[in-house]
Write a protein that binds this DNA or RNA. Structure first.
Lengths: 240, 240
DNA sequence: GAGTGGTCTAGACCACCCT
DNA sequence: GGGTGGTCTAGACCACTCA
């Protein structure tokens, strides 16, 4: 298969190839894709694998499938769209869209939490937090600013702020903590005070305010991420 | 299986039973469910069917699955306000939060579609659309402005714009059309031109730009809804 | 090494849509 | 009737986790 990537699963490779073919206009808006049976033969994989790949396309809103009829292109393939339902590091999300992810730290500090942080993270009296301010970039362009807070106790006793780099999820996992879900509020914000450096003159932000939990339901991080409107697209497929 | 419902699929029945058993406390927070193999034997279905059922639980945030370890029950009592994943009429969403929903129409017109509408709704040449501008209220307070477009063909031949009232979904269902999914983009917008009447002096909006589909995958409505920031809260639980 | 979930196969039967 | 997607089976091998 063209563009196959051996590090991914078969169904992901098939999905990526189908996304590429749709993006390149091989099928127009409203066109029917080949049947699952035909795709199965074309890619030399089982129909179950094709169906997994097609579910990827549908979850991205690129296709809709009609029972007894076929799978059709919706024409919603334009632009970068990251799936709001899917929790992953922003670096991974940016990478999945073929862009090079970067992080620039503006500040890193261990400090006393404010009241909101104390309550959200269920901190005991006297507990401290690691607080960071970061700019997230895609191909060198700043797409978001993020203010993140992690309970100090989750990081090793020998932890030093100077060793912080990369994504929030990476930092947590280096310390044996895995964030598996996040309760998220979605807001629109217009405030010139937010952010620094490379940003529009009068920026509007899509704010994802997220409280992350580990598998046991323990809150492990509070993250406010401000996405610069126009530079990063979030979306999802909603169902009744 | 207890509580089995013959009108649903096997995997749905299994999922419903597992949800019931979790809700009844058969497994506590953090407990591991039986392995997929064991569940397969217990319910007398294949492992693939069990996996489909477990994916339902995970998508609801009731469980998290750890490769090589097992599937664990989460807390799941988290309070998301209006769930972005769940598609329903805004009136219903407002009502579900104990507020009285209202609609005020500003304009109703049958007109020629613009290019974006033509492409999204897959309109033939010459097809017209019903276009409405509405303000949506909760307990009398305006919470959102919505610009909606429906293909004229979906409405009866004897349809008259003067009979439009209530929600978009109601209008569609009166004409035998049921929107079951929506491809949604989420944006932040700061533009004083949007909206009318009761709104803040310098409003910021959370824009949900949605293309609705019926069960057959036919696009049935294009809706741009601008939620006044601070007056309506959207959220969701994201999963890895 | 034993047990777990992740992926995949090669079938099968069904419900649905269209002509 | 013929083609389509929806569901399901009974295996298989792999990657991962943990004792």
């Amino acid at each position: 298969m063209p563009g196959e990537n051996a590090t991914t699963t078969l169904s992901e490779s098939v999905a990526a190839d189908l996304r590429r073919r749709i993006a390149q206009g091989e099928w127009a808006n409203g066109d029917r894709l080949p049947s699952e049976h035909a795709l199965s033969e074309h890619y030399g994989v089982s129909r179950a694998t094709i169906r997994t790949a097609l579910q990827d396309l549908e979850s991205r809103g690129m296709t809709v499938t009609r029972r007894g009829v076929g799978t059709f292109v919706t024409g919603q393939a334009e632009g970068v769209r990251a799936d709001l339902r899917q929790l992953e590091s922003l670096s991974a999300t940016i990478g999945a869209h073929g862009r090079r992810a970067g992080v620039e730290y503006r500040s890193i500090a261990v400090r006393v939490p404010d009241e909101r942080e104390r309550r959200a993270l269920q901190l005991e009296d006297g507990e401290e937090v690691l607080a960071t301010e970061r700019a997230l970039t895609a191909d060198g362009e700043t797409v978001a600013f993020s203010n993140d807070t992690i309970p100090r106790r989750l990081l090793g006793a020998d932890f030093s702020p100077t060793e912080v780099s990369g994504s929030l999820f990476e930092l947590l996992e280096k310390n044996g903590v895995r964030a598996v879900s996040a309760v998220t509020e979605v807001h629109a914000v217009h405030d010139p005070v937010i952010g620094w450096g490379d940003r529009p003159k009068d920026p509007t932000y899509l704010l994802l305010s997220q409280l992350h939990f580990d598998r046991g339901g323990t809150p492990v991080a509070l993250a406010d991420t401000y996405f610069i409107e126009g530079r990063f697209q979030w979306g999802l497929v909603r169902h009744r």
